[in-house]
C-alpha cells in the first residue's frame, strides 16, 4: 500500500480518497488519492508520463469543470471546506488557488495589463493601487528590472522565460494562498529554468506551492515534500530528501533509480 507521510505542520490542502474520471473514460484516472499539502512549503509531484500529475493538479482549482462530463469523488479540503461540492464558488476559489502552465501564456495585451488583469477582475480600479501592486508583483517575480521601462508594450514581445515570470507575476498579484505549477520550466532554457526555480523557492514564504515536474533533479532542488505517482495512484509522499535517499516503496525506488519511466 501507499506510504504517505503524516505532516505535522499546518496543511494548506488535504486530499482524501480523491478520485477523478474523465468524460467518457470507463476507469478513473486518479484512484483513492490521499495527500496532505503542507502550508507555505513546496510539494513536488513526480511520476512517469500519464500517471495523473496534471489531472490531480487541475483538480485543486477545479479546472476540469471547464469541460463538462468529468467527475470527481472523495474530497479536497481547503480552508475548512470540501471544494468539490457543486456550490463551491469557482471564481473565488481560483483567485485563492492560482495556476502557472506548461507554456507561458501571456495574454494578448500589454505587460501592465497582463499583471493587472486578475486585480481588475476583482474590481480594483484605483490607479495608484494598481500601479503599486503591479510593480510589487513584477518585483516579486524578479522581472521588474527587465520590463519597468516598457510596461505598455505587448507582452508577446518578451522572451519565453520572461513571459513565464510575467505569468507568475500575474498569478501572485492577486495574492493567492496556493500556487499550482504544471511543469513550468519544460518549455524553457536552462538559465531561465534556474531563474524560475529560484523564484519558486522565494515564493514559499507567502504561498503554498505544488509543482509538477518531469525532472527529478528539479524536484530534489526545490521541494520540501515529494509525492510519487504511478498509474493514477499516489504511491509515496515523503520529505523530499528522505524520498530520494531512502524511499519506502519499491516502485519509488525503481523510478528514482531510473529503472523505468
Amino acid at each position: 500500500m501507499a506510504s504517505i507521510i503524516d505532516i505535522k505542520e499546518e496543511c494548506a490542502l488535504h486530499v482524501r480518497d480523491f478520485e477523478f474520471t474523465y468524460k467518457g473514460s470507463s476507469a478513473p484516472s486518479l484512484k483513492k488519492v490521499t495527500m496532505p499539502i503542507a502550508r507555505h512549503s513546496i510539494t513536488a509531484l513526480i511520476g512517469p508520463s500519464g500517471c495523473g500529475k496534471t489531472t490531480l493538479l487541475r483538480s485543486f482549482n477545479r479546472m476540469h469543470d471547464l469541460y463538462p462530463g468529468n467527475s470527481y469523488g472523495g474530497e479536497i479540503e481547503f480552508e475548512g471546506r470540501n471544494i468539490l461540492t457543486p456550490k463551491e464558488d469557482l471564481i473565488q476559489l481560483r483567485t485563492k488557488i492560482g495556476m502557472i502552465f506548461q507554456k507561458p501564456t501571456a495574454f494578448p495585451m500589454s505587460i501592465f495589463d497582463n499583471v493587472a488583469y486578475g486585480m481588475r477582475l476583482q474590481g480594483i480600479k484605483n490607479k495608484t493601487e494598481l500601479n503599486d501592486r503591479v510593480e510589487k508583483a513584477l518585483k516579486d517575480a524578479a522581472i521588474w528590472k527587465e520590463v519597468s521601462d516598457r510596461l505598455k508594450h505587448d507582452a508577446n514581445g518578451l522572451s519565453g522565460g520572461q513571459q513565464q515570470r510575467l505569468c507568475i507575476a500575474r498569478a501572485i498579484a492577486v495574492e493567492p494562498e496556493v500556487l499550482l505549477f504544471d511543469e513550468p520550466t519544460s518549455a524553457l532554457d536552462p538559465i531561465s529554468t534556474q531563474g524560475i526555480e529560484k523564484l519558486v523557492i522565494e515564493l514559499k514564504e507567502r504561498v503554498s506551492i505544488i509543482i509538477v515536474t518531469h525532472n527529478m533533479q528539479q524536484a530534489a532542488r526545490v521541494s520540501d515534500y515529494t509525492g510519487f505517482m504511478y498509474l493514477g495512484e499516489l504511491i509515496e509522499l515523503g520529505q523530499t530528501e528522505e524520498l530520494f535517499v531512502t524511499p519506502k516503496e519499491k516502485l519509488t525506488q525503481e523510478y528514482i533509480t531510473g529503472k523505468f519511466g
Binding site: 479546472m63 481560483r94 483567485t95 492560482g98 495556476m99 486578475g118 476583482q122 505569468c167 498569478a171 492577486v174
Partner: peptide, 9 residues
C-alpha cells in the same frame, strides 16, 4: 490561454 484567464477567476 483561455484556461489561464479562467485560472485567475
Amino acid at each position: 490561454l483561455k484556461e489561464s484567464a479562467y485560472a485567475l477567476g
